[in-house]
Simulated assay, not measured.
Amino acid sequence: MDGKLQMDHDAMRAAADEVKNLAVAVQSVQSYITDNDLKQEHLGGHFTAPAAYQSFNAALQGLSASVGKAYAFLNEAAAKLEQSSQMTDATDVNNAWGLNKAGGR
Rank of each mutant, 00 (worst) to 15 (best):
V26A: 11
K4Y: 14
G104Q: 15
K20F: 13
A16N: 00
A90N: 10
G98P: 01
N36P: 06
L43E: 02
A90E: 10
H42G: 06
Q30N: 09
A14W: 05
Q30C: 04
G104W: 06
T88K: 15
H42C: 01
G44H: 05
H46P: 00
S31L: 12
G3D: 08
Q54F: 00
R105Q: 09
L22H: 04
V24R: 13
W97Y: 13
K101A: 09
Q86H: 07
F47N: 04
G62P: 00
L81H: 00
I33D: 01
N95W: 01
A15Q: 09
M7L: 13
A16G: 04
Q40F: 00
L99Q: 09
F47P: 07
N21V: 06
A65P: 04
L63K: 10
L22D: 01
M7Q: 10
D17P: 01
G3Y: 05
V24N: 11
G98H: 12
N100V: 05
V19W: 04
A49Y: 01
K69V: 07
V67K: 05
L74S: 06
E76M: 09
K101S: 08
A51D: 13
V24T: 14
A52G: 02
K4Q: 14
L74E: 06
A23Y: 02
E82C: 03
A78M: 03
Q54E: 12
D2T: 07
D35L: 02
A15P: 03
F47L: 07
A14N: 12
D2I: 09
M1E: 11
